[in-house]
Each structure stands twice: as C-alpha cells, then as structure tokens.
C-alpha cells in the first residue's frame, strides 16, 4: 500500500507531461522536426562584424512553426530619461531583471504577433511576463517601461520579431521544410544561446526541439578583453606607450618626408 502511494506521489506531477506527450504523438504534426542550426558556434575575431545563422527543420504539412533565438537572462542597469526644469536628462536608474540578453523570433505565419492577434505564447509577450523592473519606476506604468526597453533593444539590434520570415517549401510526402536566417549583430555578447523550434497546429503546441548556439571571443579580442579586465595597470601602460610611440613616430616620419617646417 505504502509503495503504491509513493509511486502515485512521484507519478502525479508527470501526468500533464504524459498527457501532452500522448497529444503530441497522436497529432498528425508530430513526427520529429530535425532542427538544424548553421553554424553551431560563432567566433568573434578581429574583423567580426556580425554573423548570419541559418535555421532549418522539417515539419508536417499544414502546421505552423515558430523559431526563437534566446540569450540567457541577465540583470541590466538602465538610465531613465526625464524632463527636469524643461531639460531632458537622466533622472534615475531602473534595474531590469529576467530579460534575455538577446531575443529573436520568426514564424511561418505572417499574421503572428499582429496587433489584433490573440496568440501570446511567443514573442515579446513571453519576455514581458518574465521581466521585472526595479529602482526608480515612480510615475511609469510597467508596460510603458517595457515598450521603451524593447525600443532600446531593437535599436541595438539585439531584439527582433519577424512574422512570416520563416520560409516554407514542400517536401515529398506530408512534410514541409522551413528555413530562416537570423542576423546576429556584432554587439552579441559571448555565451550560449538557445534556438527553439515550436511546431503548432491550430495554435496548439504539438512539438518542440531546441539546439545550442555558442558565441565566443577568439584571438586578439579575447587577448585584449582578458588583459583589460584582469591586468588593468598593464593594459593602461600599454595603451599610453602605444599612443606616445605612435605619435612620436608619426612626427618623425613627417619630418623625414619634409612634411613640416
């Protein structure tokens, strides 16, 4: 009897997941999506100017797909601008918690995230549910701060939503291929990112698959970043020495070429 109770206690939380699994396997949309991310890692070298990441998968015909590229949640300090004596200036600090460092979402459905769309399971709505604002938020609605936050992140190229940008092409049988490209800005921070594909049928999630995208500094940027953060004095001396030597050599070079009086 005790053993049976123990099993029930452990199994009960798994029930919703089991039901979802049954629903997914019973759905015509569920048959493995084979998510592929190319490249799987991005190296930030001396001449890095951003990167393109291609995402492709196979989904059943008639289903929709949403692909998200999500960074880890970070804490950021933002400056709030306000009017003070008729002058616009920084009037306070707002700490933001729970927002991903990067968020891109794209879909096969061009109507997704439209103004009148009721679906809120993907996109900025999800981000908004996780985010909290602390600090000097007096007199500002949370939704207003969030809108301004999204504007800031979009201006940095770190957030974006692209409904309908995931291209669908038919494959043999009852499968379709979906393909999309994310433009990763050069301001992407090193770290691990999650690429998440959600397959939807009539707005209901029927399958999802995730892959990892790694971003890291290499060569000169890795060396200088480490030097600046771990050996500030040495980095400072090097910076001054480089500047003085280069300035002096330029002066000498111009003298030799008769560039000066």
């Amino acid at each position: 009897m005790r053993q049976s109770d123990s099993w029930r206690r452990r199994a009960l939380p798994l029930l919703p997941a089991s039901l979802l699994l049954v629903a997914i396997t019973a759905s015509p949309c569920a048959a493995g999506v084979n998510l592929r991310v190319m490249p799987q890692s991005i190296q930030i070298g001396t001449f890095f100017g951003g990167a393109q990441v291609e995402v492709s998968a196979e989904i059943p015909k008639g289903c929709d797909a949403v692909v998200e590229l999500v960074g880890k949640e970070i804490e950021e300090q933002l400056l709030r601008k306000g009017r003070h004596w008729d002058i616009w200036m920084n009037v306070g600090e707002i700490d933001i918690e729970g927002a991903p460092s990067l968020y891109f979402a794209t879909s096969t459905n061009p109507r997704r995230w439209a103004e009148d769309a009721t679906d809120s399971a993907y996109g900025y709505n999800v981000v908004q549910e996780r985010v909290s604002f602390l600090g000097d938020v007096r007199g500002l609605r949370s939704s207003k701060i969030f809108d301004e936050f999204i504007k800031l992140k979009e201006s940095e190229g770190l957030y974006g939503m692209y409904p309908g940008a995931l291209m669908v092409s038919p494959l043999s049988g009852d499968r379709s291929s979906v393909q999309g490209t994310f433009t990763i800005p050069s301001s992407v921070a090193p770290g691990s990112y999650l690429v998440r594909l959600s397959v939807l049928s009539d707005g209901r999630l029927v399958e999802s698959e995730s892959a990892r995208l790694d971003v890291g500094l290499v060569r000169l940027p890795a060396l200088l970043s480490s030097l600046a953060r771990r050996h500030g004095a040495l980095h400072g001396l090097l910076a001054v020495a480089v500047a003085v030597v280069f300035g002096y050599l330029t002066g000498v070079a111009f003298k030799r070429t008769g560039g000066s009086h």
Binding site: E76, R80, W88, N90, E148, K151, L152
Partner: peptide
Amino acid sequence: LVLPPHILLDLK
C-alpha cells in the same frame, strides 16, 4: 537637452 529623446531609456 531640450528636444524629447526618441527612447526614454539608455544603457548605463
């Protein structure tokens, strides 16, 4: 200083 900014938040 006198014109309203496009975005009311900035990175610190």
